[in-house]
Design a protein around this nucleic acid. Structure first.
Length: 204
DNA sequence: TAGGCCATCTGGTCCT
DNA sequence: AGGACCAGATGGCCTA
């Protein structure tokens, strides 16, 4: 009966019932006898067979061959490094710690996604944007704002160049130019300009 | 029911 | 050495 209540962090939003989280790696008491001895394909891979088996997947086996990147040490001509093979207990502890850190990392990433969602206007406010939608909308939003801002501050544009031809790069250059020439005070004025403009555009 | 989206686990590599 | 980062795998929930 291991639900979110128990782990306190896992299930969120969407009211998903209890997503039975993956079995936490191996239970040390339950090491399958097969694991340590010889790995299938590769004679390497630091005995992770155990987890593979327990969880009913053949991850280890699959990964051995076709990884392209990241894990693709083999693909890059490296052999997998075998970390010091300490006791299963210590290894287990390190794995759990690592899982926790990874979870925290993903939570931070999701928080950033949420902040981004709230920063970009979109039509269907009732429906949560997916990650890919969030990124795509953010990209479009930034481009739009850049175009608008550059259209306003035509002083930054060389003669003949239209705002649509410009890019965020130019905007950044413009920023830096202000900073170098006039100092931070001028820059803050510039920012105020942009801010007041955005407020004005909200009303319209 | 299939497909989309997501959280989590996992092990390899990179970086400090 | 250890943490961060990354991507594949897996399974659950939700919606069309």
């Amino acid at each position: 009966m291991c639900t979110e209540a128990e782990s306190g962090r896992r299930m969120k939003s969407k009211g998903k019932a209890s997503k039975s989280p993956r079995k936490p790696w191996t239970d040390p008491d339950h090491e399958p006898e097969t694991s340590e001895t010889s790995e299938p394909g590769s004679s390497e891979q630091e005995g992770s067979e155990a987890s593979v088996r327990i969880r009913g997947s053949w991850r280890g086996v699959l990964r051995g061959g076709d990884r392209e990147r990241g894990g693709g040490g083999a693909a890059r001509g490296h052999h997998r490094r075998r970390r010091s093979h300490n006791g299963g207990k210590e290894r287990n502890v390190r794995r759990l710690e690592s899982n926790e850190r990874e979870r925290q990392r993903m939570h931070k990433l999701n928080n950033a996604f949420q902040a981004l969602r709230e920063a970009i206007p979109h039509v269907r406010m009732d429906k949560k944007l997916s990650k890919i939608e969030t990124l795509t909308l953010a990209e479009n939003y930034i481009k739009s704002l850049t175009t608008i801002i550059l259209g306003m501050s035509s002083t930054c544009l060389p003669a003949g160049e239209t705002a649509t031809e410009t890019s965020a790069t130019r905007l950044l250059q413009c920023y830096q130019q202000h900073l170098e020439e006039d100092g931070e005070e001028s820059l803050s004025q510039f920012l105020n300009q942009i801010h007041s403009f955005s407020q004005g555009s909200e009303k319209s």
